[in-house]
Design a protein around this nucleic acid. Sequence first.
DNA 1: GTGGTCTAGACCACA
DNA 2: GTGGTCTAGACCACG
Lengths: 126, 126, 126, 126
Amino acid sequence: MGADFHASKPIYMQIADKIIQQMVRHELKSGDKLPSVREMAIQTGVNPNTIQRTYAELERMAIVETKRGQGTFVVENEKLIQELKIQLQKDVISIFVNNMRELGFSENEMVANLICYFEEGKGDMK
Amino acid sequence: MGADFHASKPIYMQIADKIIQQMVRHELKSGDKLPSVREMAIQTGVNPNTIQRTYAELERMAIVETKRGQGTFVVENEKLIQELKIQLQKDVISIFVNNMRELGFSENEMVANLICYFEEGKGDMK
Amino acid sequence: MGADFHASKPIYMQIADKIIQQMVRHELKSGDKLPSVREMAIQTGVNPNTIQRTYAELERMAIVETKRGQGTFVVENEKLIQELKIQLQKDVISIFVNNMRELGFSENEMVANLICYFEEGKGDMK
Amino acid sequence: MGADFHASKPIYMQIADKIIQQMVRHELKSGDKLPSVREMAIQTGVNPNTIQRTYAELERMAIVETKRGQGTFVVENEKLIQELKIQLQKDVISIFVNNMRELGFSENEMVANLICYFEEGKGDMK
DNA sequence: GTGGTCTAGACCACA
DNA sequence: GTGGTCTAGACCACG
């Protein structure tokens, strides 16, 4: 569970992404309490300030809310989390399609290559 | 052709990517001469230092070579460019698969959602 | 009647403000009894500790007094409540004038814009 | 120009507000470069991290943009700044009206009291 | 030179 | 106990 200090994305964002993924996969549900800043800091092995920043970012995205003196909670809005998943999914696909298009692939080739990737691990895609 | 100062990737890398894409799509071929550092700097509207770094990076990847007093040329090695394309393609697919997996999708769902994306633009992906 | 956990003001102050407003508007009069701490806590949905602090704050301002075993009462001093209203009013106006001045407005423009705001809801204020 | 360490608003926000006011009053114009983080830190007498946060907040509001290695600039969008002014103005008026209404004043009384405030400083408002 | 991130450790208000 | 702010000082990538 160590942080990757050399990735391009800042640590506080990597942690935010992890939390979002947990929401999207329903490992974290509406109304659930996140670990306290200090506890999360210990769990992830980073400075509490970094977690603070993560939580602030999540709150800015309106997918988490903090109650003074009580803690930080997943927002009570299941619909918003659903939309979040759809949005993230579209973003991921969109990036993939753009990248592949820039390499000169047609839509059919993209699908074919993806299937190929699954079947062969690394086979004869061309 | 302006540089995107907001993207997460450094500008010199953005430009390197653009050049590599041109090779992979055969808009730039083995032996072709790249624009001079100064000219490229003007074309892209960035500091010549930045282009310098772009060319250095491409040379480090061994897909470009600088001939003293003559300029910078795409390496005379068609096979290497082919391999480059395959490598890039695998990277792109691999990133896509990882991202989708983190969102909780199975391989079949990935393929289905991709096809869905093409058919509907943004339809009812679940 | 729920507490706003997001506002910049602490909850105990928000509640104190609400009570003061009721006095100023004569919905609460000299000598009236405030709800008990527990009852108020239930009404507002916050921790009794928080209400305790609200009442303590009001007592510190000398606009409420606690009689042991009987409860908390609005002070028997109509004049003081009048003065409170005038003071609050001056504060509100003063803040408004400062804010508008910081935006570069003259006194005449402030009056004009206020009138404008009433007439048009949101019209062509310049 | 010292920072007020005891105000309710955090310092980084107070500084952000000051900068926004300068834009709204056209003391800072579209495209102008803000002082560097370090320089501003010296000017205001706070830690560079605090200014960093101020600039990050302004960028999040999309009224400032940072160019890597060059500095932080007022966004090239005069219209947006105009809208910002109108928005701020509406907010200020709206808060004033709400506060006065909570004290039990009618719209006419608000205007009258404001004028009174200007004429007398602190005269016989009731 | 620029902004961005991170740590360490401190203090605060709030519930 | 909680989150929020701030300082001090460090290191990094970028242009």
